[in-house]
Nucleic acid binder design. Structure first.
Lengths: 337, 337
DNA sequence: TTTAACTATGAAAACGGTTTCAAATTCGTG
DNA sequence: CACGAATTTGAAACCGTTTTCATAGTTAAA
């Protein structure tokens, strides 16, 4: 592997001059510039990025923290983030926490050890005070979760309002006994959604049912199980806010196989407008988030913070959501896909 | 940010000794070891990874090349790869080529510039001769695509056999006029599958139809379009090998909306056994790949090659596939999920 | 009592770049 | 023509580690 020194010698010039050519800096006359370019070509020289990083104190790399990339919501978000970062010349390291607070902290160490210039967190599984410790090592931007105490920029949709809209919709369709599902009440998102759900329930004075299982709804399988448990314990529930298209799909799948009519006997609302929600039969009413726009904005903010250094004060970017009404809550009519 | 020098001074020892403690090396007596540990704690010292990389010529990072992470097949593969790599202490950089051969080459530069120790390619969009150029810079392992000429280790399933099995299954179900779909005939995978399809078609002497659109089948939307074009141009087709669960889902969705009965009028086979294939109604017959096992094996091989340096000769790891028979090809009966 | 082998420590070199600084040359302007 | 400003170049410092090598003390074997 040739080094810059080899190139300099081969061109009969100094390292400094070669470095100037590599970095497109001025103060190199054309003739020498050509000689350097030629020497680089002859030797097949490529600058060593570890050396550059060390001297310039930049890695041009960011880390993205997420629970699991197989969740379509996150994979769409990462896809857009990577694309945007790549446009800016940044690499992306993916960090799956698998919902573990310890893994989250382990990955945050990347910031302290200067393996990345900045970090995006799409989920948070530690107290903010613990995460704040890492802020002096580099910028962190949150995308998706809204942490009250966080003193860094955040991007999110109004989860409370979204849940309120979805719940109101269920009520307007005639549901009288609702259930609220979530992936666990320890996340800020589930808490906000619950507030929105409760607001609608109280405002319209409809009843609702609670159950231990209801806060463990994370995937298709748990959706199926919850349907079964509802059938046995309280079959009078006629509307469910699931907080996840996959959970909704599981419920619908199981309902169809058990002769329960959707939406007549049971209306179901999902979340995220994933591919599956359009394809299920009946198709799933769901809340759409502008995930690509959110992802792009997030990367832009982070890179901007990286490049102008210094501490940055919190700014909130709240994106709009949309309730996509489909046949899992409304009688079949001509609804365009 | 304290450096190793600061720690050394604070502990009244040399950089060398501190370095030994950091790296758990012998030849440091217990008392001094404690003093170093204490100094590191006092100063909040963290070793700078750029400096380590430069000196030790290792990055502990690998890159994974893939078309798009939103494709569930790839997101499941990456999820498993990242998890495995993380267990070995390696970071993962994700590189989405978006089917561009140029982006593929750009990302391969990571290997030459020593930003990563090795690379996994799950798709290949350049001539092998072009990729081979990068091999001297670090190991590359292929996962998913089987390139004949490749002189590096490869992991894959027998795509030809898989397509043959699926096609045979369609024929056994009584299909007499088949269609073969793919995402483009420039990939080794599509070519292998086509061979398998043709083998079955010829062996059983059934007819098949070709059309320009048929090799542009990449997602739900194109599945829908292809269904429409089939309806108009050749409605006698009664069996389709799609090579993708999403394409199959698009076809089924559109068929249901147009009163075409699946599987009676039209049988459809997907590929990859994605979540959606179980949930569609009818559920989709599909080919399952042991994607997690393939991913883990791939990471293990790569890291092993990284750690023992030197050039490695090609080894092929062929994993088994399974045809999951569901209702998109068979009459509805009690088929367990 | 030597000698060899092992333990413990630190000074200095090395990794491969970028940045600073000084010196030499050229240019522009009054 | 003189003098300050701008251009061109390279030597040397620097980024923060790990590794090599030399030295000294300790232990074990001969």
């Amino acid at each position: 592997m040739p080094t810059i020194e080899d190139v300099a010698r081969h061109a009969g010039l100094s390292r400094t001059t070669v470095s100037r050519v590599i970095n497109d800096q001025p103060y190199v006359c054309d003739e020498k510039r050509q000689r350097v370019v030629g020497a680089m070509r002859d030797l097949g020289y490529v600058p060593n990025s570890s050396a550059r990083r060390l001297r310039s104190q930049k890695t041009e790399t960011i880390a993205i923290l997420l629970p699991r990339i197989t969740n379509p919501f996150f994979s769409h978000m990462i896809e857009a983030m990577e694309k945007k970062a790549s446009e800016w010349g940044y690499q992306v390291i993916i960090c799956q926490t698998h919902y573990s607070s310890q893994k989250e902290l382990d990955y945050l160490e990347l910031l302290r050890t200067k393996q990345v210039d900045g970090m995006i967190m799409t989920s948070v599984h530690n107290e903010w005070s613990a995460i704040e410790e890492y802020l002096p090592s580099g910028p962190i931007v949150l995308c998706n979760e809204n942490i009250e105490e966080a003193n860094t920029s955040i991007i999110y949709i109004d989860q409370q309002e979204a849940a309120y809209d979805a719940t109101t919709h269920l009520i307007e369709q005639g549901c009288e006994k609702l259930a609220f599902l979530s992936g666990g009440m320890d996340s800020s998102i589930a808490l906000s959604r619950r507030r929105g759900f409760m607001k609608a329930v109280q405002q319209y004075n409809v009843s609702f049912v609670e159950h231990d299982d209801f806060n463990q709804a994370v995937d298709v399988e748990s959706g199926r199980e919850i349907f079964q448990s509802i059938q046995q314990e309280d079959a009078t529930i006629d509307g469910i806010f699931t907080g996840s298209d996959e959970v909704a799909a599981g419920i619908i799948y199981e309902a169809m196989n058990n002769g329960v009519s959707i939406p007549d006997d049971l209306a179901v609302v999902g979340f995220d407008n994933q591919t599956i929600s359009k394809l299920m039969n009946p198709s799933i009413t769901t809340v759409e988030q502008p995930v690509v726009e959110m992802a792009e904005k997030c990367v832009e903010i982070l890179i901007q913070q990286i490049e102008q250094r210094g501490r940055h004060k919190r700014e909130d970017y709240i994106f709009p959501h949309t309730l996509k009404k489909r046949t899992s809550t409304t009688k079949p009519m001509a609804i365009p896909m």
